[in-house]
């Protein structure tokens, strides 16, 4: 029954965390640490650090970690499926209706209001995160150059990310700690 329990828990997490990402963490913590007691607080914090450090959605990364810790590969299958199925079905329903809805004048007016709002929300998150990351002028210039490369020159983020990983590994290697 543990596989079903794992699936159910992550289905719940997937279904009730709107906005994704960091918004999910408190709910995951409550379910996994407090209610189910699958791991202690310290291990959970380690896992969050790891989930944030690796590519892909944090929710999926967290599901992989907990599923694997509890039941190995089989656990991963159930926790990941559980966490993505709710949003999968919801988007499927929206996608099948949206094409018809969009031709409606009312819906188009609503989305004309939402589109600039999305720009506002994304820009606000830059400022919010920037407070924690940028502490000097050099870094600010770096951030702006990266954004211009991607925004205007359409350089694919893949190369930029690969370069950052290689630079990080090189510095780690030079310090002689890389095994």
């Amino acid at each position: 029954m543990k596989t079903f329990d794992l699936f159910k828990t992550f289905f719940k997490i997937g279904a009730f965390t709107l906005g994704g990402g960091y918004a999910m963490l408190p709910l995951i913590e409550k379910e996994v640490v407090e209610k189910k007691r699958w791991m202690d607080e310290e291990e959970f914090l380690d896992l969050v650090a790891l989930a944030q450090a690796s590519p892909g959605p944090i929710a999926v990364n967290t599901a992989v970690f907990i599923g694997y810790r509890l039941m190995g590969i089989r656990g991963v299958l159930f926790s990941v499926l559980g966490s993505i199925l709710p949003s999968f079905f919801i988007i499927l329903i929206i996608a099948s209706c949206f094409t018809e809805m969009k031709s409606s004048y009312v819906i188009e007016r609503i989305f004309m209001g939402i589109r600039p709002a999305v720009a506002g929300m994304v820009l606000a998150s830059v400022f919010r995160m920037g407070r924690n990351v940028i502490f000097n002028f050099k870094k600010l210039v770096f951030v702006i150059i990266i954004s211009i490369c991607v925004w205007i020159y359409k350089i694919t983020p893949i190369y930029i990310i690969l370069l950052a990983i290689l630079l990080g590994l090189y510095i780690n290697f030079k310090r002689g700690k890389f095994i």
Partner: peptide
């Protein structure tokens, strides 16, 4: 090594989000 990589990745992530904001704007 994760910390070393993230020293570079963190400002890049910020730049990517700024680019997203500009594209949508």
């Amino acid at each position: 090594f994760i910390e070393d990589i993230f020293k570079f990745l963190r400002p890049i992530v910020l730049g990517l989000i700024l680019a997203a904001a500009m594209l949508i704007f």
